[in-house]
Amino acid sequence: MNIPELILAEGFASSTGNGANPSVAAELPALNAAKGRGRRGGKAPTLQIEATSGDVDQDERPCDPDPLGSAKPKPPTSKTEMVLKKLRSAKGATLEALREATGWQAHSVRGFLSGTVRKKLGQTVASEVGKDGARRYRIETPHKAK
Protein backbone atom coordinates (compact mmCIF):
# COMPACT_ATOMS: atom_id res chain seq x y z
CA MET A 1 0.00 0.00 0.00
CA ASN A 2 1.47 3.36 -0.94
CA ILE A 3 1.20 6.55 1.05
CA PRO A 4 -1.87 8.06 -0.67
CA GLU A 5 -3.76 4.77 -0.25
CA LEU A 6 -2.67 4.60 3.38
CA ILE A 7 -3.94 8.12 3.99
CA LEU A 8 -7.30 7.23 2.48
CA ALA A 9 -7.48 3.89 4.34
CA GLU A 10 -6.74 5.46 7.72
CA GLY A 11 -9.46 8.07 7.27
CA PHE A 12 -7.16 11.10 7.24
CA ALA A 13 -8.72 12.13 3.95
CA SER A 14 -11.43 10.80 1.75
CA SER A 15 -12.00 10.62 -1.95
CA THR A 16 -15.37 12.32 -1.61
CA GLY A 17 -14.18 15.87 -1.16
CA ASN A 18 -13.62 16.61 2.50
CA GLY A 19 -9.98 17.55 2.17
CA ALA A 20 -8.70 15.18 -0.52
CA ASN A 21 -8.46 15.77 -4.22
CA PRO A 22 -10.98 13.36 -5.76
CA SER A 23 -9.13 13.24 -9.08
CA VAL A 24 -5.99 11.98 -7.37
CA ALA A 25 -7.93 9.39 -5.37
CA ALA A 26 -9.57 8.11 -8.58
CA GLU A 27 -6.18 7.81 -10.30
CA LEU A 28 -4.51 5.69 -7.56
CA PRO A 29 -5.40 2.25 -9.00
CA ALA A 30 -4.27 3.38 -12.45
CA LEU A 31 -0.97 4.70 -11.06
CA ASN A 32 -0.27 1.44 -9.25
CA ALA A 33 -1.11 -0.60 -12.35
CA ALA A 34 1.27 1.53 -14.42
CA LYS A 35 4.06 0.79 -11.92
CA GLY A 36 3.47 -2.94 -12.35
CA ARG A 37 1.77 -3.38 -9.00
CA GLY A 38 -1.61 -4.78 -8.28
CA ARG A 39 -4.05 -3.43 -5.77
CA ARG A 40 -2.09 -4.97 -2.88
CA GLY A 41 1.21 -3.42 -3.95
CA GLY A 42 3.80 -6.08 -4.59
CA LYS A 43 7.55 -5.82 -4.55
CA ALA A 44 9.11 -2.40 -4.77
CA PRO A 45 11.41 -1.83 -7.72
CA THR A 46 15.07 -2.48 -7.00
CA LEU A 47 18.04 -0.37 -8.00
CA GLN A 48 20.41 -2.02 -10.45
CA ILE A 49 24.09 -1.06 -10.18
CA GLU A 50 26.60 -2.07 -12.80
CA ALA A 51 29.95 -3.38 -11.64
CA THR A 52 33.03 -1.69 -13.06
CA SER A 53 36.24 -3.36 -14.03
CA GLY A 54 38.12 -1.67 -11.20
CA ASP A 55 40.39 0.27 -13.50
CA VAL A 56 40.80 3.86 -12.37
CA ASP A 57 42.35 6.52 -14.51
CA GLN A 58 45.48 8.17 -13.18
CA ASP A 59 43.63 11.50 -13.11
CA GLU A 60 40.85 10.13 -10.88
CA ARG A 61 43.13 8.80 -8.12
CA PRO A 62 43.40 10.92 -4.99
CA CYS A 63 46.83 12.43 -4.67
CA ASP A 64 48.93 12.34 -1.50
CA PRO A 65 49.67 15.96 -0.54
CA ASP A 66 52.94 15.01 1.18
CA PRO A 67 54.28 11.76 -0.37
CA LEU A 68 57.59 11.84 1.54
CA GLY A 69 56.02 12.46 4.93
CA SER A 70 56.48 15.49 7.08
CA ALA A 71 59.34 16.02 9.49
CA LYS A 72 57.12 18.03 11.85
CA PRO A 73 56.05 16.25 15.04
CA LYS A 74 52.35 15.59 15.31
CA PRO A 75 50.41 17.52 17.96
CA PRO A 76 48.77 15.49 20.72
CA THR A 77 45.75 13.78 19.25
CA SER A 78 43.61 13.20 22.30
CA LYS A 79 42.63 15.12 25.39
CA THR A 80 44.30 12.47 27.51
CA GLU A 81 47.60 13.01 25.74
CA MET A 82 47.28 16.79 26.11
CA VAL A 83 46.62 16.53 29.85
CA LEU A 84 49.45 14.06 30.41
CA LYS A 85 51.89 16.27 28.51
CA LYS A 86 50.95 19.26 30.68
CA LEU A 87 51.18 17.20 33.88
CA ARG A 88 54.64 15.89 32.96
CA SER A 89 56.10 19.37 32.60
CA ALA A 90 58.40 20.52 35.41
CA LYS A 91 55.93 23.09 36.75
CA GLY A 92 52.87 20.92 36.23
CA ALA A 93 49.53 22.48 35.36
CA THR A 94 46.80 24.36 37.16
CA LEU A 95 43.23 23.20 37.22
CA GLU A 96 42.26 26.21 35.09
CA ALA A 97 44.92 25.40 32.46
CA LEU A 98 43.66 21.83 32.22
CA ARG A 99 40.06 23.04 31.96
CA GLU A 100 40.95 25.40 29.09
CA ALA A 101 42.93 22.72 27.26
CA THR A 102 40.18 20.11 27.43
CA GLY A 103 36.94 22.08 27.71
CA TRP A 104 36.01 19.99 30.77
CA GLN A 105 34.48 21.23 33.99
CA ALA A 106 36.60 21.33 37.16
CA HIS A 107 35.07 18.18 38.69
CA SER A 108 35.73 16.28 35.45
CA VAL A 109 39.40 17.28 35.47
CA ARG A 110 39.78 16.20 39.10
CA GLY A 111 37.99 12.92 38.36
CA PHE A 112 40.31 12.30 35.42
CA LEU A 113 43.36 12.93 37.62
CA SER A 114 42.09 10.53 40.28
CA GLY A 115 40.47 7.82 38.18
CA THR A 116 42.50 7.68 35.01
CA VAL A 117 45.94 9.05 35.81
CA ARG A 118 46.30 7.69 39.34
CA LYS A 119 44.23 4.49 39.30
CA LYS A 120 44.28 3.27 35.69
CA LEU A 121 47.72 4.52 34.61
CA GLY A 122 49.33 4.02 38.01
CA GLN A 123 51.01 7.44 38.04
CA THR A 124 51.63 9.45 41.20
CA VAL A 125 49.91 12.83 40.98
CA ALA A 126 51.43 15.54 43.16
CA SER A 127 49.30 18.49 44.19
CA GLU A 128 51.05 21.63 45.45
CA VAL A 129 49.93 25.18 46.18
CA GLY A 130 52.35 27.69 44.68
CA LYS A 131 53.38 31.13 45.88
CA ASP A 132 50.60 32.64 43.80
CA GLY A 133 48.02 30.56 45.68
CA ALA A 134 47.11 28.44 42.66
CA ARG A 135 47.12 24.66 43.06
CA ARG A 136 49.30 22.89 40.53
CA TYR A 137 49.11 19.24 39.60
CA ARG A 138 52.01 17.27 38.16
CA ILE A 139 53.04 13.68 37.60
CA GLU A 140 55.97 12.73 39.80
CA THR A 141 58.71 10.86 38.03
CA PRO A 142 60.18 7.99 40.01
CA HIS A 143 63.67 8.75 41.33
CA LYS A 144 66.37 6.34 40.29
CA ALA A 145 68.10 4.54 43.15
CA LYS A 146 71.82 5.30 43.49
Results as ranks from 00 to 15, higher is better:
Phe12Cys: 11
Ala13Pro: 01
Ser14Val: 10
Ser14Arg: 15
Ser15Ile: 08
Thr16Ala: 14
Thr16Ser: 15
Gly17Ala: 02
Gly17Asp: 01
Gly17Ile: 06
Asn18Met: 10
Asn18Glu: 14
Gly19Val: 06
Ala20Ser: 11
Asn21Glu: 09
Pro22Ala: 11
Pro22Val: 10
Ser23Asn: 12
Val24Gly: 06
Val24Cys: 09
Val24Met: 13
Val24Pro: 00
Ala26Lys: 12
Leu28Phe: 00
Leu28Asn: 04
Leu28Gln: 07
Leu28Tyr: 00
Pro29Trp: 02
Pro29Arg: 11
Ala30Cys: 06
Ala30Glu: 12
Asn32Lys: 15
Ala33Val: 01
Ala33Gln: 09
Ala34Asn: 03
Lys35Val: 02
Lys35Ile: 00
Arg37Ala: 10
Arg37His: 10
Gly38Ile: 00
Gly38Cys: 00
Gly41Leu: 08
Gly42Phe: 02
Gly42Thr: 03
Pro45Phe: 07
Leu47Cys: 08
Leu47His: 09
Leu47Arg: 15
Gln48Thr: 15
Gln48Met: 14
Gln48Lys: 15
Ile49Ala: 09
Glu50Tyr: 06
Ala51Ile: 11
Thr52Ile: 05
Thr52Asn: 08
Thr52Gly: 10
Ser53Arg: 14
Gly54Gln: 04
Gly54Met: 05
Gly54Glu: 05
Asp55Gln: 12
Asp55Gly: 07
Val56Lys: 08
Val56Met: 08
Asp57Pro: 04
Gln58Pro: 00
Gln58Glu: 04
Glu60His: 01
Glu60Ser: 06
Arg61Tyr: 01
Arg61Ala: 01
Arg61Thr: 00
Pro62Ala: 04
Pro62Lys: 07
Cys63Thr: 10
Cys63Asp: 03
Asp64Glu: 12
Pro65Gly: 05
Asp66Cys: 04
Pro67Gln: 09
Leu68Ser: 13
Gly69Ser: 06
Gly69Met: 07
Ser70Met: 07
Ala71His: 11
Lys72Gly: 07
Pro73Lys: 14
Pro75Gln: 13
Pro76Thr: 11
Pro76Gln: 12
Thr77Ser: 14
Thr77Ile: 13
Ser78Phe: 06
Ser78Ile: 09
Lys79Met: 10
Thr80Glu: 13
Glu81Tyr: 02
Val83Phe: 04
Val83Glu: 03
Val83His: 08
Leu84Phe: 05
Leu84Asn: 14
Lys85His: 08
Lys86Asn: 13
Leu87Glu: 04
Leu87Tyr: 03
Leu87Asp: 03
Leu87Arg: 11
Leu87Thr: 05
Leu87Asn: 03
Leu87Ile: 01
Arg88Ser: 15
Ala90Cys: 00
Ala90Trp: 02
Ala90Phe: 04
Gly92Met: 05
Ala93Cys: 06
Thr94Gln: 11
Thr94Arg: 14
Thr94Gly: 15
Thr94Asp: 07
Leu95Met: 07
Glu96Ile: 11
Ala97Asn: 09
Leu98Ile: 07
Leu98Gln: 09
Leu98Thr: 08
Leu98Glu: 04
Leu98Phe: 03
Arg99Pro: 00
Glu100Trp: 02
Ala101Leu: 13
Ala101Thr: 12
Thr102Glu: 02
Gly103Ala: 10
Trp104Thr: 06
Trp104Tyr: 15
Ala106Asp: 14
Val109Gly: 05
Val109Lys: 12
Val109Cys: 08
